[in-house]
Structures are given as C-alpha cells and as structure tokens.
C-alpha cells in the first residue's frame, strides 16, 4: 500500500481514543486519510466539489459509527468501504435526489452521463495530453471497473483489501482488474495513445 499505508494498531488506537471522547484523535485520522479519500472520490465521481462533499460525509459517518466499530482487519478497509458506498450511492441517486424519483436508477448510461457532466479540468495542475486521455479512458469505465483500478493503482491496495472494500471475492477483484485494464488499453489504442 502506498497512500493508505496500513498503520492498523495506530489507527485503531486513535479510534479507541476518539470513542472515549478525544476529538483530536479523530482529527488525526482525518488528517491522515483526507487526501487519499478525496482522490478516490474525485476519480469515482469526476468532480472536485462532489469529491469534497463525499469525503466530508464519509468522515462524519465514520465518526458516527465509532461506537459500533470493531478493530477487525484494517481501519482503511472500513473507511474506504464507507467512502465507496457513499460514492456509488451518489452516482446512482444523483438524479433522484434532484427531485426526479421517476428517473431510471443504476443504469450504466446514467453513471456515464453523471460523471461526464461533472468532469472539470483541474486548472491547478494542467494535465499533459497523455494524462488527459488516460484520465478520460478511466472516467469512461463502469463504476465497478473504475473502483478496482482506483483502489489498486491510485490507493495501492492489495487484492484482499480491495475485496473487503468492494464486498466481493478476491477472485472477482482479480478478474475485474484484468477486464478493466483490457478496457483501458483498448480505449487508449482508439485514442492513439502509446504508454511508454
């Protein structure tokens, strides 16, 4: 793991202190994981504003769940499980929350439409053309392909952790990752991109 380097015992110690009413212990967890969480949400949701909202809501949910948390496996897989659920629900329900409850939910097109509409070029860090096209290809993946790629390549998680976060089997993670990469490479070829 890179960004989400497991510091399990330390994380759980902070959770225990936060449960006991030490708000600063929770703040340490927020400081530790805010950037990986925002990066995940940004790649999934496509918009920075949405990413920040989702990240904020996720941390609040985690805080609310502290009393019921059990120090099982890694704190990060729990955290990203919450982040991931909120993000997928956001992608699915975006239209419904917009007072249009009759809109079809969970359709692939809906996902693509939502995310394509939300994309905003990051003006602070101009992407190189290759990066731009790669980001575009990633953006176009289905959510279940995108999430395994983002968790693996951007968050540096191993298959076991990805399986925990996405609530599927390790074998499913493996096959989804392979298929997601195939899609990416196919799209990049169509866009005329050669990665060195």
């Amino acid at each position: 793991m890179t960004d989400t380097q497991p510091r399990d015992s330390d994380d759980w110690a902070l959770v225990a202190r936060a449960r006991g009413g030490d708000v600063r212990a929770f703040e340490t967890l927020v400081r530790r994981y805010q950037n990986p969480v925002i990066a995940f949400c940004y790649r999934m949701a496509g918009s920075y504003e949405d990413a920040e909202d989702l990240a904020q809501e996720s941390f609040v949910r985690v805080y609310r769940a502290l009393d019921r948390l059990t120090p099982r496996a890694q704190f990060t897989t729990f955290l990203f499980g919450v982040v991931r659920n909120l993000t997928l629900n956001h992608l699915r329900n975006g239209k419904r929350r917009g007072r249009d409850r009759s809109a079809p939910l969970g359709e692939e097109d809906q996902f693509l439409e939502d995310s394509a509409a939300g994309v905003q070029p990051d003006s602070a860090a101009r992407l190189s053309e290759t990066e731009d096209l790669l980001a575009e290809a990633l953006e176009a993946l289905s959510p279940e392909h995108k999430e395994v790629i983002v968790l693996r390549e951007l968050q540096g998680m191993d298959y076991e952790s990805i399986a925990e976060v996405t609530c599927c089997r390790k074998g499913t993670v493996k096959s989804r990752l392979a298929r997601a990469r195939e899609h990416l490479r196919k799209r990049l070829t169509e866009l005329g991109v050669t990665l060195q």
Partner: peptide
C-alpha cells in the same frame, strides 16, 4: 501512467 495521474 495511472499511478502518475494527478490526485487532488
């Protein structure tokens, strides 16, 4: 390439 993508 993916790992080098900007992370807000």
């Amino acid at each position: 390439g993916l790992r080098a993508l900007p992370r807000p």
